[in-house]
Each structure stands twice: as structure tokens, then as C-alpha cells.
Design a protein around this nucleic acid. Structure first.
Lengths: 343, 343
DNA sequence: CTGTTAGCGCCTTCAT
DNA sequence: ATGAAGGCGCTAACAG
């Protein structure tokens, strides 16, 4: 362990130390180090050297106390475990990291009591703002309008339209997914998806249906809602093939479902993509790159969502025009071997 | 967005405000709120009510400035994207969250320049300590002995034995995995694993061999090192069955590999687990729970690793006896359908 | 029991 | 160009 632990840790250098070593007052030292102009070049030089020698790092606490801004934000996730929080977090961390902002991470584990606790703690630390990351796209309770700092909701929108939320456009995602299949010449398209209690599942199905309708087509059968699992993908595919052996594409609500679908198609002697094209959702690398053939999937651009949330928060902190409502960001199709033109 | 943004945010209540409203001095207000004893009950009551009414939250910055401790730690990860950082992070966040410690999250993205930058930034914010989370179990460069705060390395140990590192015991993991297979009555055990450049791969293979040697047995063939992918699992299994059709168990270096192995076994008409038992590594839910049958896997207890690192750091901050060296934590076998006694 | 004073480390007027 | 003084919000000494 570094260093020799103990309550009496060697004193970290302070501006006073630097000033003394450089033979100037703290005020002058401060100006010198902060690039203020009213300092003789030679003096500045001396101060900088002294700071260097003591490896002086200005105490951000003191600075924040004075400035009223701390240069910190809170990132409140509801489940780190889940699939979607991480990329958003990465995007936000990335956007902030570049701008000298430090991120407090708090995981509420889906517990609103714990969430409330974290909010209090973060406010006590005088964060300049908050990003709330949800685990599903269904609206979630607002943190309220009475908070002393701006808040941006990511992935899960706030149920209060006065708040600003950044979410992926799942309706459009369903639409572009189907458009890709249509481009491949597929016309008998089925949709196997997850838990209908999820707005994401319903949105994607709506988008898919709309795109088909635009082309004068319809889904083969109704969308099959079930669970977000490989097992459901397998079960639903068996049912599907029994009723509609002529299907030439399956749009799946998740990559896990898609994996299950592909397994059963293969077992039933259907070639992918020659006979049946398969598309997943989420573009989860571990699933898309392990399948045979590689799985085409829709990517929700979650890092982008995180980055956008960070930028919006940044703007709000700086005092920009306050935005509100739910803003959507487009998704994108990542084409791999499981979809190809009908030959 | 909440609230109406702008530079002139409504003043957050300060202790002075509370004191004024309660009609006492700030010192008395402070004592009252902090439970010091030298305060008349009735006065305390008045102060508490005033604080309540103003929703007063003590400014942790000011407190930290005074106390010399901030109640914050830095969590430095090298790749959030990877599989292993998250559970460790969750464990650490959990352990700290309970103790009123807030966590700064920084992702270096595998870049040591960025890492250095983050360390500086965190020290400027006067974190009380640092946890460095790596993405592989191979030793990594130490942050150095000159840091003004204690550091604990998690998953990837520091290359300086003076530092404290907490890592999963991969050698023992290989051992207990084989022991489980032996318990199932398997004796012709093969090992298909990932990139031999990873210490984790070599450690597990060593442990597996040792356990077999203890039983007077040996691996069927040498361990097959390759990549951490399903594709490699498939390719290696094909080779394996050609040379050793009598194999009755395959220990895999990762769950991804195991999925590939199971697919090819099935295609070649081998039943799992009746003919061949299969075990994975990492206990990655999305993979273990989607396979047919469900996949037995070794869990590295990464949350535990994170929690242990947090506790060690906590101890060091409190000034406990400094620990050093690499401490290992045991892994555990999670038994599912892919392994069963030979019938 | 309560209030006054001092100071944590820093930055910003305001004199000099 | 430099320094002295005040204050950000809070707590720990000491007085009263």
C-alpha cells in the first residue's frame, strides 16, 4: 500500500508553501499560476518552478467553495448490471472527462429509497448537475422540479415534460430495421420480440409495422412478444415455422432472441441468410460476433446518448437556454452476415 | 430541465441561514445539527426545524476543507467496456456507498497518458484514496510510491510488491473446476482456452493440470490455447473430437468458448452432459443462461474483489496497518445442467 | 449552554 | 507589479 499509512500523512503542498518558496505573497503566487496578466514574467517563472518542485496541485475543494461551482456532476444509474447503463456512462464520462469535469458514480440498484439517498449525498457535495440513467425506455418518476441543480435524464425519460430527457428513437429503429430487410428483397417478415411490458418492445414493433405499411406490406403473423431470452427465441421460431414455413426474414427484439432464432432455423434446415435473414437488436458484441453467420443488429448508439446528455447538462450548467421534453437520437443498422439480398 | 437554468441560481441554504432563522449563532447551529452534547434540547429542536424548513444540506466541500478528509475516493478503470470492470466497480461502489464515501469514476480507456491525467485530477480533488481496476490479471505498472494517498489495485495486480493488490485466484479456480468434473466421474478431460498471452489462461491451465495430477490423471492432450471466442471454441472442438473421440469432459477458458464447444458437440452427435460434460469460465449470465443445457461455469466473485479492495482502502485511509503484496480471493463453481455425474 | 474567534486553501478586490 | 485583507461554509477551540 502507498504510502506508509497513518493519520499523519506528509503535508500536501499548499499555495502558501509555494509562495514562501518563491518568496512572494500567496496573492501573487495565485495570479502567477492562474495566468493572470499582472505579474512580471520573471516572478511568474519563479512561482511556477516552486510549484513544480513541490508538486503543487491546487485544492479543488477550496476553489469550489469560493467559486460556487465544483466541476463535478453526479451520474445516477438504476442498474449498472444491466446491459444499457454502461455505454451511456462511458459516453458521458468521455464527454465530461475532456472538460475537466469529474463524475460521481452512484448505483441505486433499482431502489428509489437508495436513489433518494444518493441524490441528497450528491447535493451535499455540491455537484453542478445530475444525469439520471435508467435501464428501460419506459418513463420514470421525475426527481422533481425543486432541485438546486440541472438534471438530464438518459435512456429512461422523466415522466415530467418539464424535464429534459435524451432517449434512443426505438420507433425509428424498428422502421430502419425493416427497411434494411426490404432492401434485401425480403417481403415475408416476422417479428419475434421480448416482454410486451417494455415500451422498447412495443415501439420497435410499431416502427416495424409502419415501415411495412409504407411498402404496402404487413408482418407475417402478429409480433410475437415473450421474453428477452434465447429460450424464447427458440420457442417462438418453432411456432413460427410451423405456421409460416415461407417466412424469409425474422426481425428480433434483441440479440439474445436472435441467437435462439438462428439456432432453431439451422436445426430446421433453413439457411441464414439465404433462406431466412435474421436481425437482432442492441448490437451486443459478445452475441453478434459469436454467431454463425455474424449477426446483423440495430445499435442504439448509447454512447451517443450519454455524450448528448452530458453536453446538454454542460449547457444547462453554463446557463444556456433551458431545454425540456424528450429528445430522441437515431439508431443505426450494423450489417453483418445474417442479412443479405435474396439471390 | 430543472430548475430554470441561469447563472443566478436560487441561493442554496447555508448554515448561516439556518442559524439566523433559528435565532442562534452559526457555532450553536453547527453543534445542534451535529449532535454535539452541549446544546439545550429545545434549542437543538429549533435549529433542526429551521434546517428542515430550508432543506439545509451541509456543504461537504467546506467540511472536507476543514477536516482534511473529503470522504471521496477515485476509481480508475482501464476499460469499462470489458467484461470484468463492472462487477468490481459495483462491489466497490456498494462497499463505499454504505459508508458515506462517494466514488469518482474515471475510465482511462487503456491509455496510460489518460490514466496519469486522471490521477492528477483526482489528487487535485483531494480524494482520500484510489482503487485501480485492471482488465486482465497480468501485472500492471504501479502508480508509484510517491502518491499522497493509499492505493489498492484490483483484478490487475501492481508490479510493485510494496503495493496492495486484490485478485481472483485463477490457479485455484482451474483446480476446483477440474475437481468438480472429477466428482462427476469424468476422467478424460480436455481443456480449451483463450489467448496464452493472458496470465489468467495460463493460471487456470496450471490449476487444472495440478488437480488432475493429484488424482493421478492428466489432461487429454495439451491445453488448447487460442482466442476467447465462440469461433475458437468451435474450431478447437472439431480438432479435439477428431483426435480424442473418447473425451468425456471439456473445461473451457471462458463462457464464450464453452458456447462454441457445446454447439459443435451437439452437431457431432455428442450429448451434453450425458456423453461430454462442459464447463465455462466467468459465469457470464447472458451466455450461461442461454445455452442448452444451461452452462456450468466458474465465477470469479468479482463483486467480492471490488468489495475487498474497497474495504482494504478504507482501512488504509483510517490508518490501519498497511498491507502489501498480492492477495487472492477464491472463485466458485456454479453448477448448472452442462455437468452431471456419469450415469 | 451559547457566542466569539480563528482558520482550512484559495481567489479577488483594493491599496500600495 | 505586488501585497494585504476579506470571505466562500464550516467546525473546533476558547470565552462568556
Amino acid at each position: 500500500m502507498t504510502p506508509a499509512a497513518g493519520p499523519s500523512r506528509s503535508h500536501t503542498a499548499t499555495l502558501t508553501d509555494v509562495a514562501r518558496l518563491a518568496g512572494v505573497s500567496v496573492a501573487t503566487a495565485s495570479k502567477a499560476l492562474n495566468g493572470r496578466s499582472q505579474v512580471r514574467a520573471e516572478t511568474r517563472q519563479r512561482v511556477v518552478e516552486a510549484a513544480e518542485r513541490l508538486s503543487f496541485r491546487p485544492n479543488q475543494l477550496a476553489r469550489g467553495l469560493l467559486a460556487g461551482r465544483t466541476g463535478t456532476v453526479g451520474l445516477l444509474t438504476s442498474d449498472l448490471e444491466g446491459r444499457f447503463g454502461i455505454p451511456i456512462l462511458m459516453g458521458a464520462e468521455d464527454a465530461f472527462g475532456a472538460g475537466e469535469v469529474a463524475v460521481f458514480l452512484c448505483d441505486a440498484r433499482g431502489d428509489s429509497i437508495r436513489e433518494q439517498h444518493h441524490v441528497r449525498a450528491l447535493l451535499g457535495r455540491r455537484v453542478d448537475g445530475l444525469i439520471v440513467v435508467g435501464s428501460r425506455t419506459d418513463p420514470r418518476p421525475s426527481l422533481g422540479r425543486e432541485l438546486p441543480v440541472p438534471v438530464v435524464y438518459a435512456y429512461a425519460p422523466s415522466d415530467d415534460p418539464a424535464d429534459l430527457s435524451i432517449v434512443p428513437d426505438n420507433v425509428d429503429a424498428g422502421r430502419i430495421a425493416v427497411q434494411h430487410l426490404l432492401t434485401c428483397g425480403r417481403t415475408r417478415i416476422a417479428h419475434i420480440t421480448g416482454d410486451p411490458g417494455y415500451l422498447a418492445a412495443r415501439d420497435r414493433a410499431d416502427g416495424a409495422r409502419a415501415a411495412l405499411a409504407d411498402a404496402g406490406l404487413a408482418l407475417v403473423d402478429e409480433p410475437r412478444f415473450g421474453a428477452w431470452s434465447e429460450g424464447w427465441g427458440r420457442a417462438a421460431t418453432a411456432l413460427l415455422l410451423d405456421r409460416h414455413p415461407d417466412v424469409d426474414a425474422v426481425l428480433c427484439g434483441s440479440d439474445q432472441i436472435a441467437r435462439g432464432v438462428m439456432d432453431v432455423l439451422r436445426e430446421r434446415g433453413q439457411r441464414v441468410p439465404e433462406d431466412v435473414a435474421v436481425m437482432g437488436f442492441d448490437n451486443w458484441q459478445v452475441l453478434t460476433s459469436g454467431s454463425r453467420p455474424l449477426l446483423t443488429s440495430v445499435d442504439m448508439n448509447l454512447e451517443q446518448v450519454g455524450r448528448a446528455a452530458a453536453q446538454a447538462l454542460f449547457g444547462a450548467i453554463a446557463g444556456g437556454a433551458p431545454r425540456s421534453g424528450v429528445e430522441t437520437l437515431p439508431c443505426r443498422v450494423v450489417i453483418r452476415g445474417s442479412t443479405a439480398p435474396l439471390s
